[in-house]
């Protein structure tokens, strides 16, 4: 960090706004994350609420993806990464002795920036998770899960005649919806999305956003996005990260019309920080 960054960093004292909610699905308190010696997240506390989309915004490198990966312990797969703090899902400690990370990652699913379908058929892409988690006892049940997930992801009508075609044969937007179908096939409770629309055109983006809004009825959703308009459109709450700290969190309406912190204001209005 250069001097001016250091000044800004020192001046972020805690988080403006309510980091807790009445109905937390997940609760993170005083989370620090290190990559080796380098700290990437500084004492961040934040609740993820049920039936709500929370958008995480902030400049590149501020720690959004790192924070998102705390929610399903994906950071543990990075050897140099160390996470501390209290994290829970439905009140259950994410680092508790009985917690199975494979199960956790099914309950807290993740959709990545670049669609990453497996080199398998469309059907098998979606059936993969239910199979390894033993969610279907026969083919008919599995069919039902696959079709249902594709329908929920808004993709079924476009692919119903070619479920055997490779997932990679789909367009980018379709692939992303396939990945969403794959994520919801295992009935997650929370869905994490890291810039899910950055490679998509406005129509495909609109479809995904519509889908996010529908998914909200049954899931808790956290989405990282670089598009201010997207954050404003899809989320109910917005969290603004800067230099590894959570600067401000609040209702999206509030954040986009009258943010409390100057750094938030500067960022969303495209001013020099």
């Amino acid at each position: 960090m250069n001097d001016s960054h250091q000044d800004v960093f020192d001046n972020i004292k805690g988080t403006v706004g309510d980091v807790t909610v009445d109905n937390p699905k997940m609760r993170l308190s005083n989370v620090d994350v290190f990559y080796g010696e380098k700290q990437a997240i500084f004492d961040v506390s934040l609740d993820i609420a049920n039936n709500e989309v929370i958008a995480m915004i902030g400049p590149s490198g501020c720690g959004k993806s790192t924070f998102l990966r705390c929610l399903n312990r994906m950071n543990d797969t990075i050897p140099t990464c160390k996470v501390t703090g209290e994290m829970s899902l439905d009140g259950e400690d994410l680092y508790g002795p009985n917690l199975d990370t494979v199960l956790l990652r099914a309950r807290v699913g993740m959709v990545f920036q670049k669609p990453n379908p497996f080199a398998k058929s469309i059907y098998d892409n979606v059936a993969y998770g239910p199979r390894i988690h033993g969610l279907a006892s026969n083919r008919a049940e599995l069919d039902e899960i696959v079709v249902g997930s594709l329908q929920k992801a808004g993709l079924y009508d476009e692919v119903k005649d070619r479920l055997d075609a490779p997932g990679t044969s789909l367009s980018g937007g379709q692939q992303q919806r396939l990945c969403i179908a794959r994520t919801i096939a295992v009935s997650p409770e929370v869905i994490l999305m890291d810039e899910p629309c950055s490679a998509l055109d406005p129509i495909a983006t609109a479809k995904i956003e519509e889908l996010i809004d529908e998914l909200r009825q049954n899931y808790a959703i956290a989405i990282v996005t670089h598009s201010m308009q997207q954050a404003a459109r899809v989320s109910q709450r917005t969290a603004y990260f800067h230099l590894g700290k959570l600067v401000e969190v609040g209702s999206t309406n509030h954040i986009f019309t009258n943010p409390s912190h100057e750094l938030t204001e500067n960022y969303i209005t495209g001013r020099f920080g």
Binding site: Q229, F256, T257, N258, E265, T269
Partner: peptide, 9 residues
Amino acid sequence: RQPAASDLR
């Protein structure tokens, strides 16, 4: 420009 915050106001 889809202004936000004080620009929108």
